[in-house]
Design a protein around this nucleic acid. Sequence first.
RNA 1: UGGGGCAUGGUGCAAUGGCAGCACACCGGCCUUUGGAGCCGUGGAUCUUGGUUCGAAUCCAGGUGCCCCAGCCA
Length: 560
Amino acid sequence: MSNDDIQPTEKAQDFIRDAVREDLKNGRFNHIRTRFPPEPNGYLHIGHAKALIIDFGIAEESGGECNLRFDDTNPTKEDVEYVDAIKEDIEWLGFHWANEFYASDYFEQIYQMAVKLIQKGKAYVDEQTAEQVSKNRGTLTEPGVESPWRNRPAAENLALFERMKNGEFPDGSLTLRAKIDMASGNINLRDPVMYRILQTPPHHRTGSQWKIYPMYDFAHGQSDSLEGVTHSLCSLEYEAHRPLYEWFLRELEIFAPRQIEFARLNMNYTVTSKRKLLKLVKENHVRGWDDPRMPTLCGLRRRGFTRAAVRDFVARVGVAKNDSVIDVALLEHCLRDDLNKRAPRRMAVLRPLKLVIDNYPDDLTEEMSAVNNPEDPAAGTRPLPFCKELYIEQEDFQETPQPKYFRLFPGNEVRLRYAYFVKCTHAVKDAAGNVIEVHATYDPNTRGGDAPDGRKVKSTIHWVSARHAIPAKVRLYDRLFRDPDPEAGEGFLQNLNPASLEILPACQLEASLAEARPGEKFQFERIGYFCADADGTPGKPIFNRAVSLKDTWAKVAGKG
RNA sequence: UGGGGCAUGGUGCAAUGGCAGCACACCGGCCUUUGGAGCCGUGGAUCUUGGUUCGAAUCCAGGUGCCCCAGCCA
């Protein structure tokens, strides 16, 4: 996959890059190495795109490298399914990791580090139950109570820890804890658990080899250290863990990376917590992780997002420490911005209404020339067949026009894009009074769309030839939640937008769209940007609406 | 009420002691063979109180508000 589509952005400037530059300048580090550390227990989403771009971007900019390291220290939640999906998403964004690592690669070394701390008298095996540990941790305002096992002799701790490793104790019966400070104002320092016993679940890589697993705090920093990571960039919630991160490194006397925290990316009308995303999938509120309404990278991709748009979006969001909620309109803007420049234009009628040109020869077919992309002359033109019977959009005709409506209505003349001026004569209705057919006459002198006498029309509408168009299904996607804050009121499941998906089963498309390959994107003129879905088959495509064209008419109509 | 962090237009990000700027959104105009795009323009912000300084969004002190931490999750 080439990266030609990714526009080189101006060199970003933010407090992390400042710190990195400073570390290089003052010699704290002489090269840069970062890591992207997902836990393989869910799919990557738009929030991860920010982390990805920071981790990989900063490494690239400074001539360094970025490792992909799966933080797989909890076998009860993790699975290879996620490993593969995560790698695919990173590649889609156009990033290349220097090494593919797993925290589980270091289990033996991390175990030896624990032994070292025990020997130093800095760790002990605790026999308290989980409830006791919790109770004795104290509260935000009261110090904790030291465990009765806290001063167990090192030799005894060593023996017990080895027996834990050998699987001699049931889950939850013992833990290995760091001996730090039960009275610390930072609760993370109140003798945090380093290892817990997990007998049963097979680990996705190490199988049943291990009966004990290190906690995040006792695995992440050392993994960074072992890899020679210079900058361990993570989100704000790890700020209170930094003293612990540094404590372990110091006590272990190993290379110390620098951890820097930044605010994660939140968007309105969107949820990004793994728990909520999983719930949406499991309870079938959406059709899987890659449902085009999901903020997952695979969902955005299926929706029709380009990686250029995603990367541009993240770049515009910036990096800071403020908790923030980005307007989803910015994401949409970035997609339009990218696709406007690159997506070929096509004719598509979503809600067809037959238009009959009464004075046009019954059997004649003419080929009109249509511009593929007005923003890109190199995209060329294509022929568009035109004949007596066409389909136009239902909303492009009004029998009695509302104010400021300039499209088709009896007596009004409009331009059929790239074809002729046509003047509406009358409409035909069914027994129920619905308009089922519109009739018009055309002016043969306006072929191509210009009137030699210089007269103007106030609007241009799109069309397809009824004889040549292909039927197709189109899915119209909208925001998944109707409230900017999905958690407002009763919670996110109660704020689902019932109109987030509308399926239009009987659209009529320009014939060239028949062979669209899944993932191909087009602008349907006057409507929006659409992406061919993998559910379609050759000759029977299905399109997803990625984003509508900005439609100021909707506002005019709303005001009227 | 312990510890840590953050406060700049509606939203997000800049300004690193020297004219508060950019983007999105919004509003208005021009242009248009997409009511798209493009072009031009309007309005709107430094949480608060005091201090230092010729000069403070920036430095100092107090106050207020919001976020994170009491998993054998990450």
